[in-house]
Design a protein around this nucleic acid. Sequence first.
DNA 1: GTGCGAAGTTGCATGCGTTGCAATTTTGCG
DNA 2: CGCAAAATTGCAACGCATGCAACTTCGCAC
Lengths: 204, 204
Amino acid sequence: MGLRERKKRQTRRAIAEAALRLFAERGYEETTIADIAGAADVSPRTFFSYFPSKEDVVFAEIDERLTEVREGIDRRPADETPLESMRRIVLEMIEAIAAEHGEYGAIQVRLVLERPSLQARALKRMNDTEQYVVERLTELCPGIDEIDAVVIAGALVGGMKAVITHCRAHGYAPEATRRAVDRALAIVEHGLGSVPALTHRATE
Amino acid sequence: MGLRERKKRQTRRAIAEAALRLFAERGYEETTIADIAGAADVSPRTFFSYFPSKEDVVFAEIDERLTEVREGIDRRPADETPLESMRRIVLEMIEAIAAEHGEYGAIQVRLVLERPSLQARALKRMNDTEQYVVERLTELCPGIDEIDAVVIAGALVGGMKAVITHCRAHGYAPEATRRAVDRALAIVEHGLGSVPALTHRATE
DNA sequence: GTGCGAAGTTGCATGCGTTGCAATTTTGCG
DNA sequence: CGCAAAATTGCAACGCATGCAACTTCGCAC
C-alpha cells in the first residue's frame, strides 16, 4: 500500500474522529463543517471529498460493519439450512452491535436516536440490507416464491431491529441479549400464532 | 368552521398541489421553494408556515392516511382476537395504499422511490407507526413480554412493507394483491419454519 | 535527480433550504 | 367602525453542498 493510500485513510480517520468528538462535545447541529475541517486540519472543501455529506460521517464505521455482515452472509457453509444460516447471521450482527457499544459507537447511537433525520438514514441502511437478504435468499432457495422471499426478509430484519432496540434500552446486558435473540427468532420461526396472547379472545 | 380555518386549508392544499405538479413536471431538486410558492401564489416565506420542510410536502396526504389507520386501530371491536384485528388492519392499510395509486399518489410513490432521502423519511414514518403498534399491543395484551410485543410489531410491519413493495412492482392488480396479503399473513402467522425451502438442507 | 502526468487539496463563487425578526396586511368580532 | 389576534411578507443571515479552476503533492519513468 503506497504512501498516498495510507495518507488518505489517515485523513479520513482524522475527519471522522474530529467530527464525532465535536458532535459529542457541542451537539450535531451546533457543529459546522468548518469546525470539523478546522479540527482535522483540512480545508472545509476537502471534507466533501471524503464524505458526501455531514450526515455520512456519522455512519462511517457502521458502514464498514455492515460490509462485514454481508461478507459473513456470502461465506455461509453449505451444510446449514437457510434457517440455521439466518440464525447465525442474526446472532453475529447483534454481537457486533453490542461490541460497538463502547468508544465512539455510543456517540453514534446517541446521535442517531436523537436526530430524526439520522434515524431515517439508519432505517434506510437497514432497508438496503434487507434488499440484500432478499437477493441472497432467492439465490439460496431456487424457485422460492418472490413474495415469500420478501416477506421472510422483512420479518427477519424487523425482528432484528426489534432486538436491537430492546437490547439498547437494557444496556446490552449479555444474558438479556441472548434471551431476546432466542425469543425473537422463536417467534419469527414458529409464527405469531404460537404466541398465546395473540389468539386469546377477550369476550367469553 | 370559520373562514380563517377554511382559507388555511385551501392554501395548504394549493401549495401541496402546486408542489406535486411541479415535481412531476421538472423533478424534485429542479423545483425550488420559490417556484412552488410562485405557483401557489404565496410568498416563499409562507411555504414554511404550512410545511416545515420541502420534503414534508411530499408526505402531506400520506400523513392523513396514516392518521386514519391509527384511528382504525383504536376503533377495534372487542370480539376480535388480536391476530384477527391485525389481519383486518393490514388489509385496510394495503387497500388504502392501492386506492391511492391513481392521481397524485402515483407521483408521491415515484418521488419516494427515486430520492434516497425521501425513501429514508418514508421508512421513518413506517417505523413510527410500528412504535404505535407496540403501544397498542401492550395495551391489548396485558402482561405480554416486552420483547414479544416489539418483535411481533416488527415482523408485522416488515411483512406489510414487503407486501407494499411487491404489489407496487406488480401494478396493484387486485387478485395478486389479495394473494400477496394472504401469503404474507400466513408466513407471519405460522412462522418461517412453515416454509419448506427454509428448512431443507442442501447436503443430504 | 529531474521532469511529467495523475491524484489530491484548496479557495472562490454560487445556489438552495431554512430560520428569526420585524413590519404589514388581513380577519373575526364586539 | 375599530381593535386585537392571526396570518403574510420581505429581509437578512447562516449552513450545507457543488462546480470550477488554480495549485500542490506524489509516484514513477527515464
